[in-house]
Design a protein around this nucleic acid. Structure first.
Lengths: 193, 193
DNA sequence: CAGGATGTCTAGCGTTGCTAGGATGTCGCC
DNA sequence: GGCGACATCCTAGCAACGCTAGACATCCTG
């Protein structure tokens, strides 16, 4: 492979990421309904069809944003977990970090969990970043707990429900801290929790 | 008011409901992305503009379906609660009924909780059926529990998270019963739960 | 029976996601 | 260096979307 085609592939990869970040910024600024292929193309200063030379369609772009989001979420949770003052506080710290993430980046969170997406979950093709984020929850529980996965699934589900119902105003958003406290004390009171 | 205009209003109300049920059936059969104003108009055997003489727009139709759904959900939960064999089993029965509802009517559930909607929640204009459904959860806890609302909000959040993550395949759907059991035993172990 | 209000439809606007086909530019080969 | 082959990109357009203006028909009222 010549150096020229190498440069081209570099540029192409760069543009690939440019599209993803542009979509994300646009969504975070004006919501996903404002992210149209035309506006996105204009933003990256190319015509519409180049988007389709990088992605199979709009859904694929959203999925790419979501995968980036999973990486960030995993890192965010990991940071919170390691920064927890004492072992008994890790679960609370990670849960709080999760809700923080959801409320501070609502559009990104939507791409990851609400919008229709091409991603395959709970299968062999599960994106590693998603698995990494999930494992942060698993790590909150003691290794000798043979139901760690169940604990993590449940915790995640509860947090997701709280995040999305609160974001859409279906439960009062200001009660979030109280509900978080409830969740953590419930689970902490469990053997090997 | 003349008898004629009365008949007209009756017919109009009938058609109003016809639109709602048609939208719901179409969504349940082929998903909400298949519910377009054109197909809906064709289905009720009127032209498109009549839809707009009944509703402010497509979102308003979805909202109307959602409100019907809340009524059904409230009735469904109520039935389960009253049919519970003993007081200690009511929470489990209601939670199971909730998950049943979500998995058996996924499109209806989406209209109620996922799709963009005109509805105002947690405010004075909260639709009574939604409040009724929520109250079914509250009724699962003892009246002397001064944190019943919190308990109910949390339970609902957890169930919603489980329902939606399972439906989208983000957590394994076959672990649902186990997670339900986990939720119920966690909360039941609480004082005045 | 005429006049006006009511109800409904045809037709079309602007926007959406997506794609075909031509124009432009770049590369490797003789 | 010139030329065919190839890759890249854009203009233009398609079908379908939500929604609406304005014409047509229909029916009640005076």
């Amino acid at each position: 492979m010549s150096a020229i085609t190498e440069r081209r592939e570099r540029e192409r990869a760069h543009r690939h990421q440019l599209i993803i970040t542009a979509a994300r910024e646009l969504a975070e600024a004006e919501g996903w309904e404002a992210v149209t292929t035309r506006r996105l193309a204009e933003r990256v200063e190319y015509s519409q069809p180049v988007l389709y030379s990088h992605f199979n369609g709009k859904d694929a772009i959203v999925s790419a944003v979501a995968i980036d989001g999973f990486s960030e979420l995993a890192a965010h949770l990991r940071r919170a977990r390691l920064a927890a003052p004492e072992p008994g506080q890790t679960l609370r710290a990670v849960c709080r970090a999760y809700l923080e993430f959801a409320t501070e980046r609502p559009a990104l969170y939507q791409a990851m969990f609400v919008l229709p997406t091409d991603l395959k979950f709970a299968s062999a093709q599960t994106p590693p970043p998603l698995r990494a984020a999930f494992d942060e929850f698993v790590s909150c529980f003691r290794p000798d707990n043979d139901r760690r996965e169940l604990f993590a699934e449940f915790t995640w589900s509860a947090l997701h429900g709280m995040a999305v119902l609160s974001d859409s105003g279906r439960i009062p958003p200001d009660g979030q801290e109280e509900r978080l406290d409830f969740l953590v004390t419930q689970i902490a009171g469990t053997p090997r929790g």
